[in-house]
Design a protein around this nucleic acid. Structure first.
Lengths: 333, 333
DNA sequence: CTGAAAGCGCTTACAG
DNA sequence: CTGAAAGCGCTTACAG
């Protein structure tokens, strides 16, 4: 119940000045102090159960050992994986992630960004980027260290860690055509997001010329269902659908059922992400696996690099994806 | 790129002392300053785009406006809901949640707890409690404000927010017996957790005397599958299973398939939690719905209460649950 | 190798 | 109603 011990308490118990105690206690400076003295300080700290006050340290060093993480919504199963990747990579360096959900709302994102700034985060990991993102531009103007993860901006203002979507789409399309499908379609993600356009572009390049592409408003099952209805109305002969992501695939699956089309017998379906539980659907979903945990971990490492050595040339990382074949795909009849 | 403005900059621009600027800027103390002066300060702050430094404020007020949140694993779909509930309830008060994953490892939990303490969180929300939890005891001894959420300890050292598990189990069992089932069984959660024993106890009270209960080692599909195998080996005549949670139900469902038992025709199955996507399984899972978002929000509010008025009598909250009937249950044949 | 001092950016009794 | 001062708990040039 009493106040936790301060460095002054440790110094007094060890019989040294608190500056000396500080040096002894810090990895980086402990070499500056006599070994025997250092030992006394460490003992004193242990006896008092001393825990340095991170708030005070932040104020004096002007670094909070904290990074802001902007995600759309923790409740979307992709992001917990990314966040754990981030935390697992940050942990060993003593950094803590401060999470903020934007709900895909730019105003909310801006507000969260500001409160994170007022908490003096050392940098940001942004998983909410739109292709033209005023927040990202602002961060760049203010010279704040940032790494983009999962989604990118058109203008590459910062290092980015994404999956190799183009290759993933090519693999999916190749698998479908290899099965003998000729009438493919793509239910593409929102055009305001890099993942939406990159996957759509890759689809156009690898699928038979003229294969239909229908945009979804959002990465949601509802948007996917709406798009699937439009697609099937206009192109009833489609035998295989590549969805912009798994949520869209879920919506499409529901529409197939609605219309009495069997999957995969009548229409094959491929998702994107390999999110949790899609292997438990009926049929189990064939999808492109994205290593979200690694995405987060790589992004965190890149940010840590920036923080350690500002001004170093910033890498950009594209992680390989692979197709996971399950039950929602088959040769056309 | 230049340093962000401080309150001294604001004060200078407004032509007042920084103490006055501080008073004007803070809700609670703005009444102490002349209205016109206050207006000048606010204008100056706006012109400079002044954002108070939360770190400096924390050091001087000895409050960080930050709470530590201990969860087992963000990757388990229950917890993002709880966490969002917490964040949504904390937000309006200006508090930020600091998340820590314990992976159900007591040592990790202790380490996380300590680093959160060193960041001077004002209190904790603990979703990782075991029935006998040394960490909870320690928090209590140190007089730190804590609210337990989802799981409780045997010794009620702190306010707790949980679902009304007993009622939920009673509803599930009642529904099953109402359908005509007489040979029920329970695959119970880990006995080290309150949810495990509370649900098992309620099952014993509401199910026909002698109905078998098999413990699972963990709330996982693997543990659920193992337990289901043991159950079916010893009690092949069972016609309805109540699982300790949805993950256990998933494991059980898999074992039913393994053994060529149809669900719900041969065996009815009920889960617990109503986690995301269980409505998309085949068959869609009948389960007891737990309002995880509200659980988190209520717990956060209780903690905020404690923080506002320390020493107030602490409430304990038990939220009502309801059975969601879907396709995994039917009358016995 | 160690100490004395200043400073990080706020807040808050204490005077007036 | 406002200012001057002290203090929160650290770190880090600067001397010696």
């Amino acid at each position: 119940m009493d106040k936790p011990p301060t460095i002054a308490d440790v110094a007094k118990l060890a019989g040294v000045h608190k500056a000396t105690a500080s040096r002894a206690l810090n990895q980086r400076t402990s070499g500056q102090v006599n070994a025997a003295t250092a030992r006394r300080v460490l003992q004193a700290a242990k006896r008092l159960n001393y825990q340095p006050n991170a708030v005070a340290r932040s104020l004096s060093t002007n670094r909070s050992a904290t990074v802001g993480v902007l995600i759309p919504d923790l409740t979307n199963p992709l992001f917990p994986l990314i966040v754990r990747g981030i935390e697992d990579a940050l942990g060993p360096s003593g950094y803590t992630a401060l999470l903020a959900n934007t709900d895909n709302d730019p105003d909310r994102a801006e507000a969260r960004f500001d409160t994170l700034l007022s908490r003096r985060v050392d940098g940001f990991l942004i998983a909410t980027a739109r292709r033209e993102d005023p927040l990202v531009v602002r961060a760049h103007e203010q010279g704040i260290p940032v790494v983009l993860v999962n989604r990118s901006t058109d203008d590459p203002l910062f290092p980015v860690v994404t999956g190799d979507d183009a290759a993933g789409v090519a693999a999916a399309v190749g698998y479908l055509t290899g099965l003998g499908h000729e009438r493919l379609a793509h239910l593409s993600g929102p055009p305001a997001m890099s993942t939406g356009v990159v996957r759509a572009r890759a689809f156009r390049q690898s699928a038979p010329a003229g294969s239909p592409v229908v945009d979804c408003d959002a990465y949601s099952d509802d948007a996917g269902a709406a798009a699937a209805r439009r697609l099937l109305d206009e192109h009833p002969g489609v035998t295989a659908i590549l969805a912009g992501n798994d949520m869209i695939a879920l919506g499409a699956l529901q529409v197939l059922r609605e219309r009495g089309l069997r999957c995969p017998e009548d229409v094959s379906l491929i998702g994107f992400n390999d999110m949790r539980f899609v292997d438990q659907l009926v049929p189990p979903l064939t999808t492109v696996h994205v290593p979200h945990h690694r995405l987060g971990a790589e992004a965190a490492r890149l940010l840590l690099d920036q923080l350690d050595r500002p001004g170093e040339p910033a890498k950009t990382v594209s992680l390989p994806l692979h197709l996971v074949v399950r039950g929602s795909t088959a040769a056309p009849r």
